[in-house]
Simulated assay, not measured.
Amino acid sequence: MAASDGGAIVVSLPIADRMRAMVFYREVFGLAALGEPAEDGVPEPLQFEIGERTRLMLIPTGGFGWVLGEGREVAPPRSHEVLLSFAVGTPKAVDEVIERARQAGGKIVAAPEQQPWGYAGVCADLDGHLWQVTVVEADGV
């Protein structure tokens, strides 16, 4: 189903630890996991609503390989094919999100600073997925 047909877009990322990942995304980005907790206290599947029709799904690495299909492997650590962006309203908010990421155990990849395109910083979550935190411009970019 095409997104224009009302379907959801789900961005899926492989993770090592469901509980740690859930806490990280709650503490850093203020996201609440969707669904009822499973036996480990984490909803299954572990998903967050990040927009009206967009969800972030975090899948344990073994399960991620299973979803990809037989003979497919998850990319090796430190191999990134995507940069996720998280837009906020002010440079101070960028600084705060990046600091929360550091406090939650994430790695600061690029400290927040003014770039030619705007104010931004980059952090990595607990599994090394890169997030650029940037100020959203008045025109939504």
Rank of each mutant, 00 (worst) to 15 (best):
S12P: 02
A38R: 00
V94S: 07
A32Q: 09
F86A: 13
G121F: 00
V11Y: 05
L58K: 06
G6K: 01
T134D: 13
D125K: 00
R53G: 08
V94E: 07
T54H: 03
Q132E: 15
V42A: 00
W117R: 05
P45H: 14
G71A: 12
A33P: 09
D17E: 07
A111R: 06
E44A: 13
E70W: 03
A87M: 12
E73T: 13
A2P: 02
L68V: 06
L56S: 14
E39H: 00
F64R: 02
A3M: 11
V94D: 05
L46A: 12
E113C: 12
L84E: 04
I108W: 04
V135H: 10
A87V: 09
M57H: 03
I59K: 00
G6A: 09
V141H: 07
V94K: 09
G35R: 00
A138K: 07
Q115F: 14
I59F: 01
R18L: 01
L58R: 02
E73Q: 10
L83K: 01
E36F: 00
T54M: 08
L46W: 00
V67M: 12
A3L: 10
G35K: 00
Q114I: 15
R55V: 03
L130G: 10
T90D: 03
G106M: 03
V135F: 10
V136H: 04
V82C: 05
M1T: 11
V82D: 02
L58H: 13
E73H: 14
Q114R: 03
G128A: 03
V23F: 02
E137V: 05
E81I: 14
A32H: 15
Y25F: 08
A138P: 05
R102P: 13
P43I: 01
A110V: 15
P45M: 07
P112A: 08
A33M: 01
R102M: 14
I50T: 14
I9F: 05
R100L: 11
G69R: 11
Y25S: 03
Y119A: 08
I98T: 14
M22T: 09
A101C: 07
V42H: 00
R100D: 12
P60D: 15
L126C: 08
A8V: 07
G121A: 12
I59D: 11
R26G: 14
I98G: 02
E96M: 13
V82E: 04
G71I: 09
V10K: 05
R53H: 15
P116K: 06
A16W: 07
D5A: 10
L46T: 08
T90Y: 08
D139M: 11
G71E: 04
E52A: 10
H80C: 11
G63H: 07
V23P: 02
C123N: 02
L68T: 10
G128V: 11
P60Q: 05
E36D: 14
Q132F: 13
K107P: 02
R20Q: 09
P116D: 03
G51E: 05
L126E: 02
Q103N: 14
A2T: 10
G7K: 08
P76Q: 12
A8N: 14
Y25M: 08
V88E: 00
V88L: 08
P37Q: 00
S12T: 04
T90F: 05
R55W: 12
L126F: 06
F29S: 09
G106Y: 02
E137C: 12
G106L: 01
K107T: 07
F86W: 11
